[in-house]
């Protein structure tokens, strides 16, 4: 399996504090990989480093064999990395439809806008019925669907999902995870998912990494990780967050 994304020796620090230290990981073409770990482990920082929103101190980021470490976020997005950020970050003063259309702003996706839109609206019918509403007026769950839909509109090669379950009720979370599984089934899209909900995330994924205080402490296939004693003790037993 050829590597879609290859991160090696990544280090990021904020004002002298190491947020990430020597993180290496790879995501193969068509693979679904998840990064789990506690709050503050550096999961979000890692995704931001991959999409270019955070300055990297050391290490390399290769996307489809190309070193993208020096490129702006917009350039990386243009190459086919779609980042669905933590906290959804929809454009509140734009309509739902405008938000979706901006998802396909990159040149490679713009020509396929109509078909992407049709597919996204089929996946999230509620967005179609809210098309003319301002994105800021949607509920949290709807905003998450919009953020996901906006990411899919980019027809990305690599989809980065940061905590899609954050701050949502259990039924919506279930719906979101089901949709992610469906997207995965339909398109064989390469996905890198960051989650605090360890079980759900690992069950969806092919492989996973466990990140703690900025370091990869454990890596392996889904079943191996789910069976791992440390993962069971810390995350599966400790569900009472």
């Amino acid at each position: 399996m050829s590597a879609m994304l290859k991160v090696s020796g990544l280090g990021v620090s904020y004002g002298g504090l190491h947020a990430l230290a020597d993180v290496s990981l790879d995501v193969g073409d068509g693979e679904f990989v998840t990064i789990v770990g506690p709050n503050g482990a550096g999961k979000t920082t890692l995704l931001k480093a991959i999409s270019g929103a955070v300055r990297v101190g050391s290490g390399h980021i290769e996307f489809r064999g190309r070193d993208v470490g020096a490129l702006s976020p917009a350039r990386r997005a243009a190459l086919g990395i779609a980042h669905v950020p933590e906290g959804r970050r929809v454009f509140p003063s734009l309509t739902v439809l405008d938000n979706l259309e901006l998802g396909s702003y990159r040149a490679a996706a713009r020509s396929r806008r109509a078909e992407s839109l049709e597919a996204v609206l089929a996946l999230f019918p509620v967005l179609g019925s809210r098309a003319k509403q301002l994105a800021g007026s949607l509920s949290g769950g709807e905003q998450q669907m919009l953020a996901l839909g906006r990411g899919l509109m980019a027809q990305p090669d690599l989809l980065l999902l940061d905590e899609p379950s954050q701050g949502l009720g259990p039924r919506i979370v279930e719906h979101i995870f089901e949709t992610i599984a469906e997207i995965r089934r339909r398109r064989r899209l390469t996905i890198l998912l960051v989650e605090q909900r360890v079980v759900e995330a690992l069950e969806l994924a092919d492989r996973g990494y466990v990140l703690e205080t900025g370091r990869v402490v454990l890596a392996g296939g889904r079943d191996a990780l789910l069976a791992d004693r440390k993962v069971q003790n810390v995350y599966l037993g400790g569900e009472s967050r």
Partner: peptide, 15 residues
């Protein structure tokens, strides 16, 4: 307008 609303998220849309 997207860049005005949220510059970081705009960057993620190749803007």
């Amino acid at each position: 307008r997207a860049a005005a609303d949220d510059p970081e998220a705009a960057g993620y849309q190749a803007i």
